[in-house]
Structure formats: C-alpha cells, structure tokens
C-alpha cells in the first residue's frame, strides 16, 4: 500500500509539473501548480541536505563511540560543525563569525585541495603513456598539450596564426564532441525522468 501511495505521489507530482511546462498557455492552473510543487521541492531539498548533515554527525559519533581509528578526527569534525552551526543560529549567516569561517577555513582549505591537483595532474599525465599507449590516449594527450600550448601566456605573446589556428581547431572538435555529449546526457536525463514518471524507477523508497 505504501509503495502504491508513494509511487502515485511521485507520478502525480511529475505529471503536474510536466503539464505546467507544456500546457502553461492553455491551462494556467498547471503552471501555478508546477510552481507550487517546485516551491515545495525546494523546501524538501533543503531539509534533505540537513538530514544528510545530521546523518554525517551520527556516523561520526558512532565512530567515536566505537573508538574506531580516526575517531578523534571525527570528534574534531563534529565539534567544528556544532560550533559553526551554533554561531550561525545565534548570530545569523551574515555575521562576521560566519564570514570568517568562510574566509579562514572553507575557502582556503578547499582551494588548497584543488591546488594540490595541479601537481597531481601533471604527474598523472606523465605516467599516462606508461600505462596506456593506445591511439585514443595519444589523441587525448596531444589535444591537451596543443590546447595548453596555444592558450598559455607566453613571454613573447601568442604566436601569430599558429595559436589561433590550434585554438580554433581544438575548439571546433571539442565543441562538436561536447555537443554530442550534451545531447547524450539530455537523452539520458529524459529517459531516466520518464522511468521515474512511469514508476519503473522508484528511488524514493517505493521498491
């Protein structure tokens, strides 16, 4: 019974939203319903993020309680979370404390993690031909190098014609490939969405 109800709810919600998309001119009610349901979905999605964070805390607390390896790091994480969340609740998200949290912790650490990648990617590129020497690997590597060489800042400025030719060529090929990929992704999205609307896929726990 519960499966039927949840499936019916999901299918009905989706159909209403679809009707709101394509019949908004004919039936404005569907458009209003679509916006209403979308608004609900925004709230529910926000709550879902919150549930995810609570689950993260639960897992880390269990890890600490079980004295598993890395439990102290989990405690540090929970402590930082609670402190930040408490400051945000008390002082609001626009307060200096929260802004300091962003400037001092979130942005530096996250950017540093990405910065490490600059070295790691070079290392991986060097090892690429050691692992795979097929034609596609070579094409991949050559396209990357050509694009970097053509686009990189040079002490003497861009090479006339050469850089632009390479950029145009790589842009043409990459745009064509990217368009095919985007269309493929859209097709996949369409198919996945239809499967949900037809009740064939029930990722909401209806199975």
């Amino acid at each position: 019974m519960m499966r039927v109800l949840t499936a019916a709810l999901a299918i009905a919600s989706g159909i209403i939203v679809l009707l709101g998309y394509f019949l908004r001119q004919v039936f404005p009610l569907f458009e209003q319903l679509r916006l209403l349901l979308t608004d609900w979905a925004v709230v529910i999605a926000a709550a879902a993020v919150l549930v995810g964070i609570l689950n993260l805390v639960t897992v880390q607390m269990d890890k600490l309680r079980a004295r598993q390896p890395g439990g102290l790091y989990g405690a540090l994480m929970v402590f930082a979370l609670v402190v930040t969340f408490g400051l945000g609740l008390v002082f609001g998200t626009d307060h200096t404390f929260l802004r300091a949290a962003m400037d001092a912790v979130i942005a530096p650490v996250e950017a540093s993690l990405l910065a490490i990648l600059a070295v790691t990617l070079v290392y991986a590129s060097i090892r690429l031909l050691r692992r795979r020497t097929d034609l596609m690997s070579v094409i991949f590597l050559v396209a990357m190098l050509l694009f970097l060489i053509a686009a990189m800042p040079k002490p003497f400025g861009p090479l006339p014609l050469v850089d632009q030719l390479i950029l145009d060529l790589t842009s043409l090929l990459s745009t064509a490939g990217a368009r095919g990929l985007l269309i493929g992704v859209a097709l996949g999205t369409l198919l996945t969405g239809l499967r949900v609307l037809f009740g064939m896929d029930r990722p909401y726990g209806g199975n």
Partner: peptide, 16 residues
Amino acid sequence: NFAMAVLVGVGAATAI
C-alpha cells in the same frame, strides 16, 4: 518516502 516522492517526481519532470 512521501517527501522523497514529491522531490523525485518534481525533479524528474523538471529535468525532462
């Protein structure tokens, strides 16, 4: 599950 059903249904239709 009900909330997830609404979220998934709306999200799927929006994506379509």
